[in-house]
């Protein structure tokens, strides 16, 4: 066998040093992510949009069943090519919020009850450095619970990679990649944000 990576996911990157600065920044990031989750769960969608950088890319690939050894190459659909669940920008995300706020988007009217759980936060990259962070790339896990009307319940679980950018107006999300751990989507809709 050739030296193909055994792991299905991308090869392990070098860990950032675990020091005080790292943990301070990690705590800041966790706070930011929890506050973001609150906005979504409290249905403050306009406020949530304000957390998104104007050049945000928001991407959720479709996950495919592929042969061993092909995961890196072929498991996930690619950003910028073909069809994914989401591959969009702030204009489209704003449209999604506008639609919910019409009050006649029946897939979200009445509104779903949604809870975002965020865990396993790890900072994977900081520029220029951890003491003076301008952009922070982090990985986390999510569990998004949605309950609709009476009996409809969906649980979306997966991994997220976010790029968080410091601006004069606070931290903003500049990139979000959402890996939902499903192949065939086991939900009738993806009418919530991740």
């Amino acid at each position: 066998m050739s030296a193909e990576p055994l792991a299905a996911e991308a090869p392990q990157k070098t860990l950032l040093p675990r020091n005080d600065a790292y943990y301070r920044l990690k705590a800041d990031m966790e706070d930011f992510l929890y506050a973001e989750a609150d906005l979504l769960d409290e249905r403050r969608f306009r406020d949530w949009l304000n957390l998104l950088a104007d050049d945000i890319t928001y991407f959720m690939p479709i996950r495919r069943n592929v042969k061993f050894g092909q995961h890196t190459e072929r498991e996930n659909t690619r950003q910028g090519a073909g069809i994914s669940w989401f591959d969009e920008d702030k204009w489209t995300l704003t449209k999604r919020v506008d639609q919910i706020l019409t009050g006649v988007h029946y897939a979200e009217e009445p509104l779903s009850r949604v809870t975002h759980m965020i865990s396993n936060v790890q900072i994977t990259r900081v520029t220029p450095d951890v003491n003076e962070p301008r952009e922070v790339e982090l990985r986390c896990r999510f569990l998004v619970y949605q309950n609709r009307i009476e009996y409809e319940t969906y649980t979306f679980v997966g991994k997220r990679t976010d790029l968080i950018r410091k601006t004069a107006d606070g931290w903003k999300i500049a990139r979000r990649e959402i890996l939902l751990d499903q192949n065939v989507l086991l939900a009738k809709n993806l009418s919530t944000f991740f």
Binding site: M60, T92, Y106, E108, I149, K188, N189
Partner: peptide, 28 residues
Amino acid sequence: KDYLRRYYMRYSGPAGMTEQDDMENWLY
């Protein structure tokens, strides 16, 4: 092609802003 795929995604299927409302109708 790039524009069309973006339009397809925001329109169609379970993540599509149009067809989500269809699914709600069919379900109930």
